[in-house]
């Protein structure tokens, strides 16, 4: 199997509620794979199990040929999985640049380095600036993160995911709460990343999903009901019935 990420028979339930029901999925290197589904379909729960924030009840997760099912979150991050959060998760009391620099720093191995001032390390700084440039935030580098708008925070999340050098980016609703213009900008940013990084995208914005995705998986009540190219999904009756028809 040449898939970058292989999920087999993953199950997770909370009390009596099955949030992930026997999910199997393969994500190919370089593809942008979107996961869609109605609210409560278990999309975020799935992502959380991939990032290591939650541990599955059964099943396995293979990443780059390594079984990571029981690895802690920070170990998965080291292997090359990064996650952006549905609710913006940034270090608000640090500058924009520091946030991204922390991601670059994370890639370079451990940070038990006590002497040199981090902000004076040029390669670190330059790379963080470059990532900010790619998402259009270079001018805001020295501002406190808390001062940025919601849309800019989402862009920062992408810059951090890029800077962490991850092979697999788990993006949880990057368009959530964005205005039309901000959404368009975000689609352009993600388009530019296609092929360079493998992206697993959870998104409610169907225009964005169909504009970006190479393949789409539809999740309903924790179960996969269809996987395929955007056109196949659009034409799939089950999907229309269970999901698209409701919109």
């Amino acid at each position: 199997m040449s898939a970058l990420l292989n999920i087999s028979n993953l199950c997770k339930s909370f009390g009596g509620v099955t949030a992930t029901d026997n999910v199997s999925l393969a994500v190919e290197p370089g593809e942008l794979h979107a996961i869609i589904g109605p609210n409560g379909a278990g999309k975020t729960t799935l992502i959380s199990q991939l990032s290591g924030a939650l541990s599955p009840d059964s099943g396995s997760i293979i990443f780059k040929g390594t079984d990571i099912t029981n690895r802690p979150a920070h170990a998965r991050a080291r292997l090359g999985i990064t996650r952006s959060f549905q609710i913006t998760s940034l270090v608000m009391d640090m500058s924009v640049l520091d946030n991204v620099a922390l991601a670059v720093q994370a890639r370079q191995g451990h940070s038990f380095r006590f002497l040199r001032p981090a902000r004076s390390i040029r390669p670190l700084r330059d790379e963080a600036l470059e990532m900010l440039d790619r998402v259009g935030l270079k001018a805001r580098a020295d501002d406190p993160t808390a001062a940025l708008s919601h849309g800019e925070h989402r862009q920062m999340e992408i810059a951090i995911a890029l800077a962490s050098g991850a092979d697999l980016m788990l993006l949880d609703e990057p368009m959530a709460g964005l205005g039309p213009q901000e959404s368009t900008a975000m689609i352009e940013i993600l388009k530019a990343l296609k092929g360079e990084r493998t992206i697993l995208l959870i998104e409610h914005d169907m225009d964005a999903v169909f504009a970006l995705a190479d393949r789409i998986t539809v999740l309903v009540y924790g179960r996969i009901i269809a996987t395929g190219a955007p056109d196949e999904i659009r034409g799939n009756n089950d999907v229309r019935h269970a999901y698209l028809g409701e919109e």
Partner: peptide, 13 residues
């Protein structure tokens, strides 16, 4: 230092 940035980052988030 880089250590300190991680420490402060972890304080914030």
């Amino acid at each position: 230092s880089r250590f300190g940035m991680v420490l402060q980052g972890a304080r914030g988030n």
